[in-house]
Computed example of a mutant assay.
Amino acid sequence: MAIDRLDQPRELRRSFRPHYDPEAFGKLSEEIARFLGTARFIVYMTVFVALWIGWNALAPANLTFDPYPFIFLTLMLSLQASYAAPLILLAQNRQDDRDRVQYEQDRLASERNQADIEYLTREVAGLRLAIGELATRDFLRSELQRFSEERPESS
């Protein structure tokens, strides 16, 4: 039994499973899901279905795609939907992960801002107390005037 060392990379293991890059696949699924959610896709699908129905309804029997053309159309649309749903879910999961990370960063920034606000509030309160202990110009004038009134006149 070999002990896995953390300071060395693992040996590559041969596997019959196909290898794919999850990040590249995720980006591709997001692009597909983004396209599936556009009006352009709806228009393309509508035109495709209308052409399919028009061709198979109006063309001579020997030029149609299949003896049961609408069943094949239903099969194709079902196949498209069976791939679209998981791709959309994968794209939503990736967006949820990004939102979760963004939420955590926003929460940390909010905590730092709150700590900064509390610190500045304490500093402002300290400055107010310090200013309250300082002699103002009016106070000095009144004290000098009182002192001059109390002092005996020396001639």
Rank of each mutant, 00 (worst) to 15 (best):
Arg122Trp: 11
Arg128Gln: 14
Asn93Leu: 08
Val124Leu: 10
Arg128His: 12
Glu104Gln: 02
Gly126Gln: 15
Tyr103Ser: 03
Arg98Trp: 02
Ile117Ala: 14
Leu89Lys: 09
Val101Met: 03
Ala85Leu: 14
Gly126Thr: 15
Leu89Gln: 07
Gly126Ser: 15
Gln92Arg: 03
Leu129Arg: 14
Leu108Arg: 14
Arg94Leu: 02
Glu118Arg: 06
Asp96Asn: 05
Leu90Trp: 08
Leu108Asp: 11
Arg112Glu: 10
Glu104Gly: 00
Arg100His: 07
Arg98Asp: 04
Tyr83Pro: 08
Arg122Pro: 01
Asn93Ile: 04
Ser110His: 11
Glu123Ile: 15
Arg94Val: 01
Arg107Pro: 00
Val101Tyr: 03
Ala91Ser: 10
Val101Ser: 07
Ala130Ser: 05
Tyr119Phe: 11
Ala125Gln: 09
Ala91Cys: 08
Pro86Thr: 05
Asp96His: 04
Ala109His: 08
Asp116Trp: 08
Pro86Val: 09
Glu111Trp: 06
Leu127Gly: 05
Arg94Gln: 08
Glu123Pro: 12
Leu120Ser: 10
Gln114Phe: 12
Val124Ser: 05
Arg128Ser: 12
Arg128Asp: 14
Val101Gln: 00
Gln105Tyr: 02
Asp106Lys: 06
Ala115Tyr: 06
Glu118Lys: 01
Glu111Asp: 10
Glu111Arg: 08
Arg100Trp: 00
Ala125Glu: 13
Ser110Asn: 11
Arg94Phe: 07
Tyr83Trp: 13
Arg112His: 08
Glu104Phe: 04
Asp96Trp: 01
Tyr103Glu: 08
Leu87Ala: 10
Asp106Ala: 09
Ile117Met: 08
Tyr119Ala: 15
Ala109Asn: 11
Asp97Pro: 00
Glu104Ile: 06
Arg94Cys: 04
Gln114Thr: 10
Gln105Trp: 05
Leu127Phe: 11
Arg122His: 14
Asp99Lys: 05
Leu129Lys: 15
Ile88Lys: 09
Ala84Asn: 01
Tyr83Phe: 15
Leu127Met: 11
Asp116Gln: 13
Asp116Lys: 11
Glu111His: 07
Ala109Leu: 15
Ser110Lys: 14
Gln114Ala: 15
Val124Asn: 00
Gln102Trp: 00
Ala91Trp: 02
Gln105Asn: 09
Ala91Val: 02
Asp99Val: 03
Val124Met: 03
Val101Ile: 09
Thr121Asn: 14
Arg100Glu: 05
Ile88Ser: 09
Glu123Thr: 15
Asn113Ser: 11
Asp106Ser: 11
Leu129Asp: 15
Val101Glu: 01
Val124His: 04
Glu104Met: 03
Val124Gln: 09
Gln105Lys: 10
Leu120Cys: 12
Gln114Asn: 14
Tyr83Glu: 12
Ala85Gln: 12
Arg107Trp: 01
Ala91Thr: 03
Arg122Leu: 12
Ala84Trp: 01
Asp99Leu: 04
Arg122Lys: 13
Asn113Tyr: 07
Arg122Ala: 15
Ala115Lys: 12
Gly126Tyr: 14
Asn93Gln: 12
Pro86Glu: 06
Gln105Ser: 06
Ser82Gly: 00
Asp106Val: 05
Leu127Lys: 07
Arg122Cys: 12
Gly126His: 15
Asp106Leu: 13
Glu123Trp: 14
Leu129Tyr: 10
Asp99Tyr: 06
